[in-house]
């Protein structure tokens, strides 16, 4: 049986991990490669690196980071941020990333997903969706530009469109739950998961091991992504995975 995946996410800016990371015994808590190694050791099933560099040099540095991670780790990883054209995908995938994640660029030009899928296969194409509940319409709206811009898209419609264009996976972030530590957005995750036939990674809101259990049991997410809960050592990957196993979830 396929196991549920737990995926730590690292924000990388100009080649350095940003947001405080509280691990004991690290030589350099800002080094993405060293952190990737720690998460690998703790049982991460996959990693996501989000490049939030603002400069061209920062993006180039990211390619070096990708190359180093690919050389040292034997688990899959995804790179997102700054993927706007086929050339951007080529750079990070050739450097050893397994998947690319795109968000705003895919909404602006959905053909980008198709171009990437035709060239590299759908399995490399992750479409990240930032969604927020809208009371008036009783549905979730898709936002781009880091959650700053509302789009015309309904989240379920957009997920279906992304799948049709060749997305191999959806990385779904609930803007309502993000940062709350009150748990993943079960209804959103369920709505998207029921609509598409590709895997869905739930993101936003993880605060405890129970939250992971809920998103797997109640929303049938295929994977769950979290950042601060792991970075700040509020719990550990090992602990979360052990807890899920005890509660009957298929975990590696």
């Amino acid at each position: 049986m396929l196991t549920k995946r737990i995926i730590p996410c690292l924000d990388v800016k100009e080649g350095r991990v940003v947001k405080g990371i509280q691990f004991v015994g690290l030589r350099d808590a800002g080094d993405p490669v060293e952190l990737a190694r720690v998460y690998d050791k703790e049982g991460a099933d996959e990693l996501v690196f989000l490049d939030i560099s603002a400069s061209h040099e920062g993006r180039e540095t990211m390619v070096d980071v990708v190359r180093q991670v690919a050389a040292e780790l034997a688990i899959p990883f995804t790179v997102g941020g700054g993927i706007n054209k086929l050339e951007d995908m080529k750079r990070v995938l050739r450097a050893g990333a397994d998947k690319v994640s795109m968000n705003t660029a895919a909404v602006l030009r959905p053909e980008l997903i198709r171009e990437g899928a035709d060239y590299f296969g759908t399995q490399c194409m992750v479409v990240a969706i930032d969604a927020k509940w809208e009371e008036e319409t009783g549905s979730w709206r898709v936002y781009t530009h880091g959650g700053r811009t509302a789009t015309e898209w309904d989240a379920v419609e957009w997920a279906l469109k992304a799948q049709e264009m060749g997305a191999g996976e959806i990385l779904l972030t609930s803007m309502d739950a993000d940062g709350s530590k009150d748990g993943f957005d079960i209804s959103l995750t369920k709505a998207i998961g029921n609509a598409v036939t590709i895997p869905v990674i739930a993101s936003g809101g993880a605060g405890s091991s129970d939250d992971f259990l809920d998103v797997f049991n109640d929303a049938s997410a295929d994977a769950a992504l979290a950042a601060s809960i792991f970075h700040y050592k509020e719990t550990s990957l090992t602990h979360v995975k052990e807890y899920l196993k005890q509660n009957g979830v298929a975990i590696r």
């Binding site: 049986m1 196991t3 399995q123 996976e169 895997p199």
Partner: peptide, 9 residues
Amino acid sequence: KVPHMGWNK
């Protein structure tokens, strides 16, 4: 789901 994506025994 298709693709078969993830860790399997």
